[in-house]
Amino acid sequence: KITVTFNGEEKARRYYKKMQKHNLKVEIRVENNQWVVHVE
């Protein structure tokens, strides 16, 4: 499981979509004013 933190929504969403293309289970959320993407 990987957790990647971004300081911008745009970058986070781009990464999220990229990971989805690989058929990975991805989850995006905001934690402590940071955009966090969890990849299983």
Rank of each mutant, 00 (worst) to 15 (best):
K1T: 14
K1V: 13
K1Y: 14
K1A: 11
K1W: 15
I2A: 05
T3N: 04
T3M: 08
V4D: 01
V4P: 01
V4F: 09
T5G: 04
T5F: 13
F6I: 02
F6Q: 01
F6A: 01
F6W: 02
N7I: 08
G8F: 11
G8W: 09
G8M: 14
E9P: 08
E9Q: 06
E9D: 02
E9W: 12
E10R: 10
E10P: 04
E10G: 08
K11D: 15
K11M: 15
K11H: 14
A12W: 03
A12D: 02
R13M: 14
R13A: 05
R13V: 10
R14H: 10
R14I: 12
Y15L: 03
Y15G: 02
Y15I: 02
Y16Q: 06
Y16N: 01
Y16K: 05
K17F: 10
K17I: 13
K17L: 14
K17E: 15
M19P: 01
M19Y: 03
M19E: 01
M19D: 02
M19S: 03
M19H: 03
M19V: 06
Q20K: 13
Q20N: 05
Q20C: 13
Q20E: 07
Q20G: 04
Q20P: 02
K21L: 13
K21W: 08
K21D: 12
K21N: 10
H22M: 15
H22I: 10
N23S: 07
N23R: 05
N23A: 10
L24I: 09
L24S: 06
L24R: 07
K25F: 08
K25A: 08
K25R: 11
K25Q: 09
K25P: 04
V26R: 00
V26M: 04
V26I: 06
E27Y: 10
E27P: 00
E27Q: 08
E27W: 09
I28L: 11
I28W: 02
I28H: 00
R29F: 13
R29L: 12
R29P: 00
V30T: 07
V30I: 12
V30E: 12
N32S: 06
N32I: 04
N32M: 06
N33L: 06
N33F: 07
Q34T: 10
Q34G: 05
Q34Y: 11
Q34L: 14
W35Q: 01
W35A: 01
W35R: 00
W35M: 01
V36Q: 05
V36L: 06
V37P: 00
V37D: 00
H38V: 15
H38S: 15
H38W: 09
H38K: 07
V39W: 06
V39F: 07
V39N: 00
V39P: 00
V39M: 06
E40D: 10
E40T: 12
E40P: 05
E40H: 13
